[in-house]
Amino acid sequence: MTKSTRIFMSVIYWAFVVYLFVPLVLMVVMGFKDSAFIGFPIQSWTLDWYKGVFQDTEVINVFIYSMTIAITSTLLSLVIGTWVASFLGPYKFPGKVIIFAITCLPAVIPGIISAISLRIYARFLDIEPGMLAIILGHTVHNVPFVALVVMARLATLPKSHIEAARDLGADSLIAFFRVTLPYLRPALIGAGIFCMLLSFDDFVRAFFLGSYQPTLPVLIFAKLRSGMSPEINAISTVVLVMTAILGIWAERSMRRMNKGA
């Protein structure tokens, strides 16, 4: 590579980084603006918007509501996904490919289609729009991700590890909990964080399956419609910081554990 192409490549790279981060930086900066209107110039700064967010019981309740949905649907997805993976992974049986395809389908169906069909299905099952419906919707959507990640990890577990556990006196259940599950841990943590973020971030399903109580993205959408204000920037910044911390921590701990395994 010549010197000029190298410079050219790095200019492109940095241009891309700027393109990626400018909106985020703008969003964060505007959250500190002491004015109800978003945009330059900024004459004075304030922390009032943030104070407002942390004192606004509605925002806090919605946040808790969204977290509850994210955590519950993630736990459900992990349990079901692991169960599907341990069922689909090691055994060979007729129709396995079809079952596998059906399992993966919810991950690739367009969100709007999936949201509408889930809404119809929930009504059919007599499930009221609301938390339960959203949790089930997110679980259906997230199970394939868990199943795929767990299956990939499971495929690398030597059969002899399970046999050794059985040999040393473990029945198949104990062997699963004491050998298979610890082995799957990095995969479960990774998949779990991914599910949490997917659920927390989801707008379409939450919008279609929700009741009057909004999730955070739905709330932000509602606030947007009544006018853009730096309060939205403040909420978004808090969410951004939290997800970034979660993501980085997950990535680090997964790397650490992968090295240990």
Binding site: S160, E163, P182
Partner: peptide
């Protein structure tokens, strides 16, 4: 089944449990 038999095996790949220490591996049985 294997867990009911008074027989133990040393596997060709040793099959040591990677998430347990040496002591925990030995204590498992």
């Amino acid at each position: 089944p294997p867990n009911k038999r008074d027989v133990n095996m040393v596997f060709q790949d040793y099959a040591l449990f990677p998430h347990m220490t040496v002591g925990e591996n030995i204590a498992f049985g």
